[in-house]
Design a protein around this nucleic acid. Sequence first.
DNA 1: TTGACGCATGTCGATATCGGAATATAAAAT
DNA 2: ATTTTATATTCCGATATCGACATGCGTCAA
Lengths: 111, 111
Amino acid sequence: MARAATTADVFNAISEVARRGLLDAIGREECTVGELVARSGLSQPQVSKHLGVLRAVGLVRVRSEGRRRWYRVHGPALKPVYDWVRAYERTWNARLDRLDDLLGELQAESP
Amino acid sequence: MARAATTADVFNAISEVARRGLLDAIGREECTVGELVARSGLSQPQVSKHLGVLRAVGLVRVRSEGRRRWYRVHGPALKPVYDWVRAYERTWNARLDRLDDLLGELQAESP
DNA sequence: TTGACGCATGTCGATATCGGAATATAAAAT
DNA sequence: ATTTTATATTCCGATATCGACATGCGTCAA
């Protein structure tokens, strides 16, 4: 058995820098593959393949218009990542950490 | 060239379910490898290898005590992931999205 | 109809995984 | 000194990538 497929889940899909770059390049707009090739500096096949992975995990949606394809980011697909990593936020966020301590004290006081 | 190494950055390190599981298994405690083997159901070499990857990207810290090794999560290493994914939060958070619209309107009003 | 354009897909070689089994290292116990 | 315990490392076969290049397919233009 080898490493999990990049299309296995969102975590695997965004592990590649180029794919995060593509998502950032699209941003809040609707982009054509050609525009992304220009913005990213990647080859056209590369962009298409990376978009294929992003599409497979639901991170982008496509709309066909003639021979052009308009891609847009579908952010909600990132929620699993956000939810998972958010649980660790208090580890570097001092304010949340102090809130944690406070809640711990309150729980310790009440029998 | 092949896929980036799992030790290349935090994104690659957490792309594996087993490694996220280990981080969650450690939680806020300090764990020994044996405890993690028991909790995760993975083999001992597996656990050691995954911990090696997590250690390489700074996601865990170790402390030696005799022949035992105490591992703990070093959360701040996750900040790059959090920061990146947080930019997309407004895509699924309706309240933030409306705030975005409001800010856009305000900016459109002022010349 | 022929050709140019926009994008997707296939092939290839190189590589870095993954799990499993065996082995190595190091410390404690007998 | 030997053996057991706790953990790390190595070797193995299988596999899914990645980039580069070539090709296929649908669409618009001349």
